[in-house]
């Protein structure tokens, strides 16, 4: 849970209470009239003279009621939309169909690890289409729009692991675009951020070899299977060293999938388009470092 949870819930519960009351009154009168004035009991209807007073009440009371709801919602919104200046800034990269979190010191992670009781400001960046950064437990949601800087912030008050979901429909594997938000003690967080190896409970890709873990963390497996089934992109199993038919600048040719080829496919995927697959992969220079590409290649070498 976070400080925002209570803020949003307050407004929700107020509106819920008012709505239940109104619904009860409406249904009560509807049923009461239908029974009390049924034709067999009240054969002669009596006209009700129009009363400006009653009509004025019907305009004014709902107006006042909804005004209170507006103000309650507005106060909460102000809270949600003003990140304190001293927040820890995390860059959130959303892409089809995975999340990547980058801390101010350049540390990257597939799970959002945050310290307990600290303000965290998530700056949302989308690489392709619109995604929705949604943490239900914290009651925060904000779209990541390509070409537009947006953010959400929170201050976690309970330790534990929560879901981060994509709430804006983004294509085939939209419902699988899930990451974890893990709230940990501030000292552990700091140690982890500085590069100490800590596996937090609930983390998504614990105990994997570095190369494989990168493929998960950076979202490669959303489109490339580690088995041999065909997804959005070519499967990885048995890829290294195999013959690949590609189209380069409109010309079809056959190449061997060696280290150079894989490197090029990561940094400039539009250059050689593997036949039978659409040219949809975004260039991934900003997401993986040279060092990381090396680890991925050495993992793929072993994936027979």
């Amino acid at each position: 849970m976070a400080t925002s949870t209570g803020v949003v819930d307050g407004a929700l519960i107020y509106i819920l209470a008012m709505s239940v009351l109104l619904l009860f009154l409406i249904v009560f009168f509807m049923i009461y009239f239908a029974v009390r004035y049924r034709a067999s009991r009240n054969p002669v209807p009596s006209e009700l003279p129009e009363s400006p007073l009653i009509e004025a009440i019907w305009v004014i009371v709902p107006t006042l009621l909804v005004t209170t709801m507006f103000i309650y919602g507005l106060t909460g919104f102000r809270f949600l939309r003003s990140a304190p200046a001293n927040s820890l800034v995390v860059k959130v990269y959303a892409r089809q169909w995975s999340w990547l979190f980058e801390y101010d010191n350049g540390k990257k992670s597939a799970d959002l690890i945050v310290p307990l009781g600290k303000n965290v400001r998530c700056e949302l960046i989308s690489a392709d289409v619109i995604h929705g950064f949604y943490v239900p437990a914290f009651r925060i949601q904000q779209d990541a729009v390509p070409g537009l800087a947006t953010y959400a912030w929170f201050n976690a008050t309970t330790m534990g692991s929560y879901y981060i979901l994509c709430s804006q429909y983004c294509g085939r594997r939209h419902s699988a675009m899930i990451a974890k938000l893990i709230v940990v003690p501030p000292d552990q967080f700091e140690a982890w951020r500085q590069g100490k190896k800590i596996e937090f409970t609930g983390a998504s890709y614990a105990n994997m070899p570095a190369g494989e873990r990168l493929l998960y963390e950076r979202g490669c497996v959303s489109c490339h299977s580690l088995e041999d089934n065909k997804m959005m992109g070519p499967p990885f199993k048995g890829l290294f060293g195999s013959q690949v038919v590609v189209t380069t600048a409109g010309v079809q040719r056959t190449v061997v999938a060696d280290s150079a080829y894989i490197h090029k496919s990561i940094v400039d995927p539009g250059a050689d388009i593997v036949s039978g697959f659409p040219n949809t992969m975004p260039p991934s220079k900003d997401v993986v470092s040279e060092d990381e590409i090396g680890r991925i290649i050495s993992y793929l070498k072993g994936l027979k």
Binding site: L12, Y72, G73, L74, L80, R139
Partner: peptide
């Protein structure tokens, strides 16, 4: 019911939780 739940969605902070 439809109209009253619209009030939840029209209100700013509850909408952040309930949107989509």
């Amino acid at each position: 019911i439809g109209g009253l739940t619209g009030l939840f969605l029209g209100a700013l902070s509850p909408n952040v939780q309930l949107h989509n």
